[in-house]
């Protein structure tokens, strides 16, 4: 089973990197771009076949290592 984890900054946490990306896109002529938020995408191969168990383990992985819950949210997606 494969899992995809998205880690994003919480609302209200300033994202200067996202801002810089937005400014660059504007400079390149993409005037339609407003607010930009940057995050992380992590893909994991799992030996687990039970979706419920996999989700519980992934939740633990996110809390223990993959995300810093002081400033970040995470979402888990199971694929195949």
């Amino acid at each position: 089973m494969k899992a995809r984890v998205h880690v994003t900054l919480k609302n209200g946490v300033l994202d200067p990197q996202g801002k810089a990306i937005g400014h660059s896109l504007n400079r390149l002529g993409f005037a339609e771009v407003g607010d930009v938020r940057q995050g992380k995408f992590i893909e994991l191969e799992l030996a687990e076949t039970d979706a419920t168990k996999a989700r519980a383990r992934l939740d633990e992985m996110c809390r223990k290592l993959l995300a810093n819950t002081v400033i970040e949210n995470y979402s888990i997606e199971l694929v195949g």
Binding site: V13, P16, Q17, A20, V70, I71
Partner: peptide, 10 residues
């Protein structure tokens, strides 16, 4: 408590 983020001016 807390965390250290990227410097505001990058």
């Amino acid at each position: 408590p807390g965390t250290l983020m990227r410097n505001a001016h990058l």
